[in-house]
């Protein structure tokens, strides 16, 4: 039996030990928002937040998630309303077919957090100052393939959401 929290709710489930977190979500818990694009950790469509960090849920065994906290695309809503990143994806048309989108959005939410806490990326300058630039967003979002090619709009959505969050913080 694996006990964990998914989108704020306690979940207990016993599955075949070979079951990935992704397949548990999709096939057993009816949380089909997380997508299977490759099942090899190569496309990012299955990205979820595990204890707040983004992971490819196709590379995580469900049985190993005991005691952990999972947030999927279904958990990023703000009550009945779309969350800020979800709204930005709609207004910037940051998707077309929508299949990579839940993974992109989970990845984008984690990207903002990583930038804010100062995690360096491959494009961060050696002097260490990290800002939410287009290049930083592009680099950090390159693990999420969008075959429809909405990349420009994805960057716009992440930039806007990041900017809005920073402004809110400054106002407090």
């Amino acid at each position: 039996m694996t006990s964990l929290t998914i989108n704020g709710k306690a979940v207990e489930l016993e599955v075949d030990p070979r079951t990935t977190l992704l397949d548990a979500l999709r096939e057993h818990l009816k949380l089909t928002g997380s997508k299977k694009g490759c099942d090899h950790g190569q496309c990012g469509a299955c990205t979820v937040l595990l204890d707040g960090e983004r992971v490819n849920s196709c590379l995580v065994l469900f049985a190993g998630c005991d005691g952990q906290d999972v947030t999927t695309i279904e958990g990023l809503k703000d009550g009945d309303e779309l969350g800020a990143m979800q709204r930005a994806f709609v207004s910037h048309d940051a998707f077309q077919c929508g299949y990579c989108t839940p993974g992109q959005i989970c990845s984008a939410v984690a990207t903002l957090k990583e930038v804010e806490r100062g995690d360096a990326s491959a494009v961060t300058a050696d002097d260490g100052d990290i800002h939410l630039t287009r290049l930083e967003v592009q680099e950090r979002m390159s693990g999420n393939i969008c075959r429809c090619g909405a990349y420009n709009n994805i960057v716009d959505a992440v930039m806007e959401t990041g900017g809005a969050a920073l402004q809110t913080e400054a106002a407090e």
């Binding site: 089909t32 695309i73 279904e74 994806f89 959005i105």
Partner: peptide
Amino acid sequence: GPLKVSGA
């Protein structure tokens, strides 16, 4: 759009 960005 709202359905696609919320996994629905």
